[in-house]
Design a protein around this nucleic acid. Sequence first.
DNA 1: ATTAAATAGCTAGACTATCTAATTACTAGA
DNA 2: TCTAGTAATTAGATAGTCTAGCTATTTAAT
Lengths: 154, 154
Amino acid sequence: MEEEIQEGNSLQAHELSWALREVTRANAEITRELARRLGLGVNDMTAMDHLLQGGPLGPAELGNLLGMRSASATALVDRLEAVGHVERRPHPTDRRRLVVEPTRHAVEEVLGVIRPLVAGLDAVAEELSPDERRVVARYLERVSEVMGSYGPGD
Amino acid sequence: MEEEIQEGNSLQAHELSWALREVTRANAEITRELARRLGLGVNDMTAMDHLLQGGPLGPAELGNLLGMRSASATALVDRLEAVGHVERRPHPTDRRRLVVEPTRHAVEEVLGVIRPLVAGLDAVAEELSPDERRVVARYLERVSEVMGSYGPGD
DNA sequence: ATTAAATAGCTAGACTATCTAATTACTAGA
DNA sequence: TCTAGTAATTAGATAGTCTAGCTATTTAAT
């Protein structure tokens, strides 16, 4: 896009918000692209991402992270299991529960696809000085807070 | 991921990337929430967003922004038109084309829902000094570039 | 102990949104 | 004018989600 930040003039707040909006838009695009490369739907890919990132999750718990009902989560885990990306294991203490575990092969495949992106983003962060990183991190945290405050409510 | 051991007190690059990841995750959530409040699907809401933001768009052009085929875009515009959120108008010069225009009522409704969020994000930007805003903006632009470089390709 | 309520996951059937392929109408270049 | 290309649509198929209801298990209250 052609909107360049003006040198000399002060940068208006809404221009910064616009840059943020561009990031979220680019993120939506890349999410579709990564899913396509993995041969998964967007939600299925995002679910794998959550499984790699976070601790052990049950099907419904996983679905909640994606804003879906437990029935849909069952179907989601079915699909992931069918392609060998996850396995259902019994929960160690609660016999009602399951834990959904990514398979070794799936971990490698997913990481292989997202690694270049992660590396690219880390490289951008490396370009900043430690002080600058602190400024940006604080901004990003505040943005997360504000977004979170509009979470599923009334 | 557990707490990273920091060298000195400097903020590591991947911690910053993690903060970015939190933002994109929060954005995915709030996108669902905003769509829910408007009684629209996520793509339909995002389409409205694009129509408010950008210049005049045809159905397929709009669909491309969302990564969908022209047939799906036709259906999308059908849905938006059915609830009175957009109108199909003839393109001024090319009689094959249409322009999809949001209705006055829809503009108000959508803006009413997203305005608080936009205001909240602008307020976060206001908390920063002009210099800090420049630093953050540059980071966000670089992030958009990196994400864009993984765009739909091979 | 027994019973009642809540929780986790699953099944069934319907609905929504997307896709591919083919169709119509129009534009533009040789 | 003929031909190739483009914009939008239609038709049919498929995938993913939803609601509603089910079983099994756990937790809490008699």
